[in-house]
Write a protein that binds this DNA or RNA. Structure first.
Lengths: 126, 126
DNA sequence: TAAGTGTATTATATCACTTAATACACTTAG
DNA sequence: CTAAGTGTATTAAGTGATATAATACACTTA
């Protein structure tokens, strides 16, 4: 719906999900994929809010989550930076992947699918 | 959090999700797994609302979704019944499974995982 | 000192979800 | 025919998450 450039990043914002979750997910994705380098500065709260035309508080909420994820660190008066720890990024990726897998398997088993069924579906997809 | 028996079915209700979605998912699951026979009557809107101690309108919303799924049929003055079409149940299961798989793959690719990674994770799970 | 950082607070608005109280048309058991 | 049980519709109200708005404070750097 809405697409904006900021700091070399591509932002997609719509109304299908809470704004702060979309910002959160896109940073998570960018950092996990290495599209943002370790230690790199991300846009300031005010800048991103202005570019996306949303409220600074909403961006704040996303940034606080990012820090709880261990993906960013804040420096007073300077800004928000991607963690310099490759290990933290790896750990985060692995944990989130586990959650996705568990949720997926849970869903499939709720529908009465067996492991053989799931594998068959997966084979069709690749 | 809350567990209740009604018409041979087990109901789990909490506050982690909208109530109508929880009711919906549990009926979907029960029907897809064959825990409720084709053509069988499910509890009336009022009865289920009373047992679960929630509002009839909330149950109604779930039942309307169920019918949109093609899993139930309503008969005026009689009640709501599971469809007699095995084909509709199969179709529903397959469609929902596809959605779960697509969402899962989307998530994993957002985290930068490749197909080989996904397969490795899956192997660890079984 | 001024501008740019993150952060906190208070107030307001909107929307999804849920409840509540009724009412109506239909079907079935008596 | 009557009463009870069905699904359904309507209107009103309450709650919580989300988002906006306006403002202020402490810190850092040029």
């Amino acid at each position: 719906m809405d697409e904006r450039q900021v700091g070399g990043l591509n932002f997609q914002i719509d109304f299908s999900q809470p704004l702060y979750e979309q910002i959160l997910d896109q940073f998570r994705s960018s950092i996990a994929k290495g599209e943002i380098d370790l230690g790199e500065k991300i846009p300031s709260v005010r800048e991103l809010a202005q570019v996306l035309k949303i409220n600074p508080n909403t961006v704040m909420r996303a940034y606080q989550e990012l820090e709880r994820d261990g993906l960013t660190e804040k420096r007073r008066g300077q800004g928000t930076f991607v963690t310099t720890s490759q290990e933290k990024v790896r750990q985060f990726r692995h944990q989130l992947a586990q959650e996705y897998i568990d949720a997926f398997i849970q869903h499939m088993e709720n529908l009465g699918y067996t492991w053989a069924d799931i594998e068959a579906y997966m084979k069709n997809k690749r």
